[in-house]
Simulated scan of single mutants.
Amino acid sequence: MQIAGFGVESWLNDHEREATTDISQSSVVALTMAEIAAMDGQKGQAFYQQLNQARLDYGWIEGSPTFKALVSDLYQRVPGENVLQTNGATGANYLAIYSLINPGDHVIALYPTYQQLYDIPRSLGATVDYWHVREDREWLPDIAELRRLIRPDTKMILLNNAMNPTGGLMDKALLSAVVALAREVGAYVLADEVYQPLDGTPFTSIADLYEHGIAVNSLSKTYSAPGVRIGWVATPDSAVVDQFRKYRDYTMICGGVVNDQLAVLILKHRQQIWARNRAIVVRNRAIVRDWIAQQPRVSLIMPKGISVACIKLDLPMDDESFCLNLLRDTGVLLVPGSRFDLPGRARLGYCTDTPTLKRGLHLLGDYLAQLD
């Protein structure tokens, strides 16, 4: 098995600890442990009492019944028994692809988005065709291209919705067109849905549109708890869930007792977290919009209520060299667009805390001005 290096992850592994102003990350600014624990309404006392009494055995292998029920509530067609807890969304994506894709299978992947969704199937020996997102369509793909790519033997269509790093979002009509094509050939549709919009933009999960839809999500992005490392895979297809269970035994025993209890607390109070994060998204997006208007070397297709953005840079050098120089000279961290196969661009993590965003944009703007 051969696999390409994971562009964005290797960049962050190498450089994020060097940064003094990190505006590269894709989550809404993380909650503290104290903030999460206080959601019990007793300043954390009830949560920690529950935790102190927990025995640190393997716990619930697939996630506790409470966790599974809370995740099920996020969907219309997914019963609790069809929810499996995973090690983040990356674990869920890997589980689904590893379970269903064999050498010689044909898959179609939205591209460029999250590298895991096309390089893992390729590493397993699948033939991977790209369904391209297009800047001139506000980072959406053309359904006519998918119609040309799909084959009678297509096994799976892999989506990132909303999309990292561009912030593009496929609406219900476009997803329904994808489902119609997939249904004609019996293909699965997997959608990594960790970037759900927070500003009221309508969002539809693939699991609620298609009997063979596989939804992946986690607490890392919209829920601001990447350190909990809990995600899930959810589908109305019970036969697929049983397939996942078999392969999951080889990749993950359990999510951990402590992490499960944290996940339950977060999901029980998701409306409170979403309200907090919505305010951050709306406030910071306005700051970015105003900053862009003053930058002759920067343009941006504005994301909706999604925590990632992809700025286009007018540079006299390649984007990776620019980002390295920027980090060295100012301490500001972006992710070069080339790490997503989007040269001349950079991922802007605008949903960091507002003072950090303002400082980062100021330093970035001054640095770009030196190029004139």
Rank of each mutant, 00 (worst) to 15 (best):
T127E: 15
W131N: 13
L169I: 13
E145I: 08
L158Q: 07
A144P: 01
L169F: 07
L158G: 06
N164Y: 09
W139E: 10
K155E: 09
I143L: 13
W131S: 10
I150H: 04
D129S: 11
I143M: 08
W131L: 15
P141I: 03
I157A: 11
E145C: 04
L149H: 05
Y130K: 13
L140V: 07
W139S: 11
T127W: 10
A162Y: 05
V128E: 09
E138D: 15
D142R: 11
D153Q: 00
N164E: 08
G167W: 12
L159I: 13
A126T: 06
Y130W: 15
L140F: 04
M156G: 06
L159D: 12
D129E: 15
T154P: 01
L146F: 06
I157N: 09
N164K: 01
L158E: 08
R147Y: 05
R147K: 14
A144D: 13
A126Q: 09
N161T: 03
D153L: 00
E135L: 14
I143E: 11
R134F: 13
I157L: 13
G168N: 03
I150A: 00
E145P: 06
I157M: 12
G168Q: 08
N161K: 06
G167H: 13
W131I: 11
V133T: 09
L158R: 02
D142N: 15
L146M: 05
W139V: 05
T127G: 07
N161D: 06
P165G: 02
K155D: 09
L158P: 02
L149F: 04
N161P: 06
A144L: 07
A162H: 01
I157K: 08
L146N: 02
Y130M: 14
N164W: 05
H132G: 04
D129Q: 08
R151V: 00
R151M: 01
L140T: 12
L140D: 06
M156P: 04
V133W: 06
Y130L: 10
T154V: 00
A162C: 07
A162F: 03
L140W: 05
R134N: 11
E138H: 14
K155M: 10
A144R: 04
D142E: 15
P165Y: 10
E138N: 14
I157C: 11
R147A: 15
L146R: 03
L159T: 11
T154I: 00
M163H: 03
I143Q: 11
A126L: 11
D129L: 06
V128M: 09
P141V: 06
M156I: 11
M156R: 07
E135T: 15
M163V: 05
P141Y: 08
G167K: 07
R148A: 08
R134T: 10
T154F: 00
A126H: 06
T127H: 13
N164C: 07
T127F: 11
R137P: 03
A144C: 01
A126R: 04
T166A: 04
E135K: 15
L159Q: 09
V128A: 06
I157Q: 13
L146G: 03
R148F: 03
D136M: 14
L146A: 04
N160E: 05
R137K: 15
